[in-house]
Write a protein that binds this DNA or RNA. Structure first.
Length: 192
DNA sequence: TGCCTGATGTTCT
DNA sequence: GAACATCAGGCAC
């Protein structure tokens, strides 16, 4: 696999959102490893009124304008974390929100973080952060390294990918920038 | 099954 | 002071 930063830094954020479907995240907690597969994503870009980067760089959005291949973690609704993969060249302010993942290995570790089972474990952006024990301490973390690593996989067949409008936003709602793996049970419910 | 709402605090106006 | 890239639980049907 190519160098993560170069790869993600060189592709358009919408392409990146599509390409990240099927890729795997490897998380290590206290020497225990778990692996999940990305099944739902959304693209965000500075030119996009729904994006945190839309109003320019702020202390919160600083890492969105940094180098690709890092984690952008934000806190929202007073109780939830969500995580993104930064893409594109520096200063572009683009990132891909990870909306849902599918457990591949060591589901027990995910349950430890969340206290739920089955699809409820990881079928939403804040749910998967809780299951993977990701909070703002990991904001800016380089995904080429432990304890959270991103493994790029070969692209899925276009026929297996569905594109729709994004979820839970009030601006720029018409862009078809949400992608998910067709018929995957871990895709978030509101996703249809 | 599906709508409605409370929780809870950071960020930006 | 309002908005917010959400979730879970309650209640009506």
């Amino acid at each position: 696999v190519k160098d993560l930063q170069n790869y993600l830094g060189s592709i358009d954020v919408v392409d990146a959102a599509r390409s990240l479907l099927g890729c795997e995240l490897e998380r290590t907690v206290d020497g225990e490893r778990t692996i999940v597969r990305i099944v739902e994503t959304e693209a965000y870009h500075q030119s996009d009124a729904a994006s945190h980067s839309y109003r320019g760089k702020t202390p919160r959005t600083d890492v969105m304008f940094g180098s690709a291949g890092r984690l952008y973690v934000y806190f929202t609704y007073g109780m939830h974390y969500c995580c993104n993969v930064v893409t594109g060249p520096e200063e572009e302010g683009s990132a891909v929100l990870i909306r849902a993942v599918e457990p591949i290995e060591n589901t027990t570790l995910l349950q430890l973080g969340r206290g739920k089972t089955g699809v409820e474990l990881t079928n939403g952006p804040a749910k998967l952060c809780q299951a993977l024990q990701i909070d703002t301490n990991f904001n800016g973390h380089d995904l080429a390294h432990a304890p959270i690593r991103l493994h790029i996989k070969p692209p899925l067949a276009p026929a297996g990918i569905v594109a729709t409008t994004r979820i839970g936003i009030t601006n720029d709602t018409e862009r078809p920038w949400r992608f998910y793996i067709k018929d995957n049970p871990y895709v978030s419910k509101r996703a249809v």
